[in-house]
Design a binder for these strands. Sequence first.
DNA 1: TCCCCACTTGATACATTATAACGTTTCTTC
DNA 2: GAAGAAACGTTATAATGTATCAAGTGGGGA
Lengths: 181, 181
Amino acid sequence: MAKMATQTEGQTRSAFPHRHHNHQRCVDQALGKALSLCEERGARLTSLRRRVLELVWRSHEPVGAYDILEQLQRDGHRAAPPTVYRALEFLRDQGLVHRIESLNAFVGCPYPDESHVSQFLICTACSEVAEIDGTKIRAAASRNAAAAGFAIDRLTIELRGLCARCNAHDQGSSEPHDHAR
Amino acid sequence: MAKMATQTEGQTRSAFPHRHHNHQRCVDQALGKALSLCEERGARLTSLRRRVLELVWRSHEPVGAYDILEQLQRDGHRAAPPTVYRALEFLRDQGLVHRIESLNAFVGCPYPDESHVSQFLICTACSEVAEIDGTKIRAAASRNAAAAGFAIDRLTIELRGLCARCNAHDQGSSEPHDHAR
DNA sequence: TCCCCACTTGATACATTATAACGTTTCTTC
DNA sequence: GAAGAAACGTTATAATGTATCAAGTGGGGA
Ligand SMILES: [Zn+2]
Ligand SMILES: [Zn+2]
Ligand SMILES: [Zn+2]
Ligand SMILES: [Zn+2]
């Protein structure tokens, strides 16, 4: 199992991206990886699917299917719920997008080209989600599950709490901080 | 943090209950604990809430809010969605019921009187769910999260796969097994 | 070239899950 | 018993997700 990258070229990657990071770079990188992965696999990254992937990557906050739908419609696209859900299904199958179960929402995967175990950190203050490596958790889960004779297919690991930034603000003052939307 | 019990009086407790276990005992025990806990806390376990708890405990499969609603209505109760959701909110606040995020469904907690970290094993063949102790997972999760400066509030740990029983059946033959509904 | 076939998308309708808002009843406390 | 809080009933609506069938698209192969 490949180890998840902790850097992207020139830009240090902590779990949560910097507040003023160059997000266009995140988007470009995600689309670039998607393109080459789909090519490699013979999967058809159509313009619609590509557009949905872009919309999922508009930020590091999970996005609802109906938000995506609304954006598509603003683009002038004749879209209905199945349009979005089908595109999301494709993207999930390709490992380009994850679903956050506890939010009924979707987020882009920064590591689609690496086999990995997802662990999501969900900040309840700023709504951003970071995906980190959950290999150790999988090991612990496997031990527990094996003791019960349970054969694991898939894991859902989602943590709610405060990201470092929001946590610092909360302790420093009771003022609301502005990076929340 | 208390260690989760692995036995109930006279009845060995593996993660998944035995196929022909005395489920009435599960129900009685759950209701008994609920009663004493609520008493102790000054929380009002009204007849409606108690009835909803019973319905959640009808089996070891997670139950949807609208299934509960339907049952209440069959009982002759004038109920609407908020009736059920409010009761479930109370029961969750008291730790008597958990929500399985990946299923949008609810399951009774066997350990409401013990502080614990829930890890759910969800069998995709028979739909039963077992709750086991996730303390070790919490430790792994905490280490990961701490490295990111993330302050954990709550964990969601849900595993999909096959319980020991269903796994054995799958390997022994390709016949469908009858404990699935 | 043209047809066939698989895949993708459009379009309509519907199913499932959850909450907002407001009035009424019930319980507790004084 | 009156006042206030909590629980519940009731109606309406929001939010999320699917089933179904028709129409478009794009490559191989006759
Ligand atoms: Zn970014
Ligand atoms: Zn934050
Ligand atoms: Zn039982
Ligand atoms: Zn099973």
